[in-house]
């Protein structure tokens, strides 16, 4: 163990956070309205200081873009962290909430909520349903992979669960197809986009997401021990049931809340921890989860910010971030699968 000074660690973390803030501020300049970085910073500073800004800047920068950028950062960090936890839990670099059907399960639960009008009765119905959907899928995965844990079997189980949950959404939509408003709402939500997401979403989503992020980090030690295998980890005091329960709560909060806000954003949870891990391995060192998880948060936030900003830059052409990440992620997954099966 190389003793690393807490100061150095703090400096790295601070530097990454600062870089992310600068990127977020830059992202706020993109889009209609022609705002410079200076104007963005001035507006934010004045607003935070309680001063008056002109109505146009207030409306576009403060009311529309700020919450959107914050949500992109938060959702990206959450999906990245959820990916790192899922991979660690299944000891599998190809596992992620998207690949294993956890995100699709969350989406199906939300569509079911739409169908029965639950989302109109209570604001919290959608995130709670999404979290339950995610946890149900995770439970099904635990049950179905209890006997075999090899790569192919886990992925095939994920394929089956993905298909089942997707079919459930489709069946519900088909049943309620004559209700035009419902179908439109569900489709718009399923595309996965930050359009029209604002402070209202931020207000109910930030608490569960921040709790989930803290929870994800708290699992770092047992996830490290798990590389030795579940039974050896048990002889080192890592209790499987407790770890699984903790991971289910964390993944439920992170994936459920994220999905409730922006719909299914595929593959972020797969790509992000992998990029972090690959960089560390190239540098000749493994990456402990104590660092992998925060790094996945930062990389995930940056990726989501980039995808959303690209989408806004191309406006008025609509580019769903979920579609873009799936496109990139799908190709990445194929490459990864090829590589993993060559080694293994």
């Amino acid at each position: 163990m190389k003793p690393e000074s807490p100061l150095r660690r703090l400096a790295i973390a601070g530097g990454l956070a600062l870089a992310l803030l600068v990127a977020a501020a830059l992202a706020m300049t993109v889009g209609p309205g022609e705002f410079s970085l200076g104007e963005v910073l001035r507006t934010l500073a004045t607003e935070l200081g309680g001063g008056e800004v002109d109505r146009r800047a207030h409306g576009i920068l403060w009311e529309l873009r700020l919450p959107r950028v914050l949500l992109a950062v938060l959702v990206g960090a959450s999906l990245g962290a959820a990916g790192a936890v899922t991979q660690g839990l299944f000891r599998n670099p190809l596992a992620s909430p998207g690949v294993l059907g956890i995100s699709t399960g969350a989406a199906a639960a939300v569509v079911a909520g739409f169908s029965f009008g639950l989302d109109e009765r209570a604001l919290w119905a959608t995130p709670v349903l999404a979290a339950l959907g995610a946890v149900a899928m995770l439970g099904a995965l635990f049950g179905l992979t209890a006997r075999r844990q090899d790569l192919a079997y886990l992925l095939l189980t994920g394929v089956a669960l993905n298909a089942l949950a997707g079919a459930l959404s489709t069946v519900l939509l088909a049943i309620f197809l004559d209700r035009y408003d419902l179908a439109q709402k569900a489709m718009a939500w399923m595309m996965g986009s930050f359009d029209g997401r604002g402070f209202r979403h931020l207000s109910w989503a930030s608490l569960p997401l921040l709790a989930g992020l803290a929870g994800a980090w708290s699992l770092h030690r047992p996830l490290d021990v798990l590389v030795l295998g579940e039974e050896t980890a048990a002889t080192l005091g890592v209790e499987r049931g407790r770890l699984r329960l903790g991971a289910a709560v964390v993944v439920g909060l992170l994936v459920g809340t994220s999905t409730a806000i922006v719909g299914v954003i595929g593959f972020v949870g797969l790509i992000v921890p992998h990029l972090a891990r690959a960089a560390a391995t190239r540098a000749g060192r493994g990456l402990a989860h104590a660092r992998l998880i925060p790094l996945s948060m930062v990389v995930g936030a940056a990726l989501m910010l980039a995808v959303d900003t690209l989408g806004r830059a191309m406006s008025p052409t609509f580019l769903a971030p979920g579609a873009l990440t799936s496109l990139l992620g799908g190709l990445f997954f194929l490459w990864l699968l090829r590589r993993e099966t060559e080694v293994g």
Binding site: K2, V227, R277, G284
Partner: peptide
């Protein structure tokens, strides 16, 4: 013991 990903020996 099958290691799922790389890790430094001392870790």
């Amino acid at each position: 013991t099958a290691l799922p990903w790389g890790m430094a020996v001392e870790s």
